[in-house]
Nucleic acid binder design. Sequence first.
DNA 1: AATCAAACTAATAAACCTATTAAACAAACC
DNA 2: GGTTTGTTTAATAGGTTTATTAGTTTGATT
Lengths: 212, 212
Amino acid sequence: MAKLKEVKGGKEGMEFSILHAADELFMERGFNGVSTTEIALKVGCNQALIHYYYRTKANLFQKVFENKLSFLISLFEVDDYKGLSFEDKLRMRIESHFDALAQNPKLPMFVLNELKNNPITIDLIKETFNNNVPYLTGSLEKELQEEHKAGRIRKISALDLMINITSLNIFTFLTLPIMEYVFGLDQETTKEMFEVRKKEIVTTVLNSIRPI
Amino acid sequence: MAKLKEVKGGKEGMEFSILHAADELFMERGFNGVSTTEIALKVGCNQALIHYYYRTKANLFQKVFENKLSFLISLFEVDDYKGLSFEDKLRMRIESHFDALAQNPKLPMFVLNELKNNPITIDLIKETFNNNVPYLTGSLEKELQEEHKAGRIRKISALDLMINITSLNIFTFLTLPIMEYVFGLDQETTKEMFEVRKKEIVTTVLNSIRPI
DNA sequence: AATCAAACTAATAAACCTATTAAACAAACC
DNA sequence: GGTTTGTTTAATAGGTTTATTAGTTTGATT
């Protein structure tokens, strides 16, 4: 009836289906580990169709990767929990960063992995960083200076603090597959471990910036 | 003269040359990123020779990987800096772990990378872990309990503390290529950054375990 | 119903890759 | 010198892979 193209399992639905399937496969096995043939198989279409929509495999991959990157950066754009003390605010930030990763546990490994194997990705990162990091550290820097002047924390730069938090949080998920396999953890135990580890990280970070 | 086989750029020298070249190439681009043809090219020998000595590419890779793994584990077998206070001892441990990584900055990424892409590696890790971790945490655990009883540190498990240290140290090197590229660092600046970061990590860890 | 564009597929070219095979070479030994 | 043993190579089978090409299907429009 309507003149708009319908999405009925074909048409432009197909273009998205390909992106979606590629997303899942790339996340699991990375750029080199996935063939366009395999993507086509998962979508249930002809292999040439992938090239019809995205021309090259690298092109398709880039679209997937850009999405992931902007998600990762978005984790640092925090709500400004007003009225809370600096300590409580920081606690919230650490936890929300951790939780977001917990919902996308494969993401950090995927990004680091591709960063190593896939030359094009480093430029994407560079762009994203230059556009966002100064903006992100800015307000934190100010808060830290105030807190330090008030004698409530030791001297530390926003960048160092952010690196500390990301290190502790992300490393948890980088090594998760190892832990699961080596210690034979089931899903339930993994979840519990998450909570324990999250608490420990918060304690560590908050404790680590107390005045000397 | 001697009946021993001579190493004159051939013979068993060749077997080692192949391992060595494979090591460098695998470290740079991982298992999937390197072909036996390429290894042969680097060694300057025929491609079939690689299969003559190692039969399969996976076989050759495994030999390289095992070496890396045992090196990484060895970083935790610390000299027992006798006579030092616990704090000084811990400081030394963190720094020596950091320094060892600084001399092999590509190692952490390589191992994590292969762990994701290369099914056989996870079993190698499992074995290595089961053989070493309990032994490694054991003595630290005792020290931590003593220090805690004496009121000199807060309560923390050896595993958590070790994860914290490894997180902070390793993450530095995982993100190093990003930092170098994004901020356009030269070698000298990178080295300075290392020292700054090392100090910050030591401060963070020591501070983070002070009694509450 | 004829037409036209977009969506889709079959077939395949060209470039890789690993691993094997059979033959050439070299040095050591009798 | 001839034989033997281990080392090295050339050639190639058999399997991928990405990307293109040319043609078919589909469905809307006139």
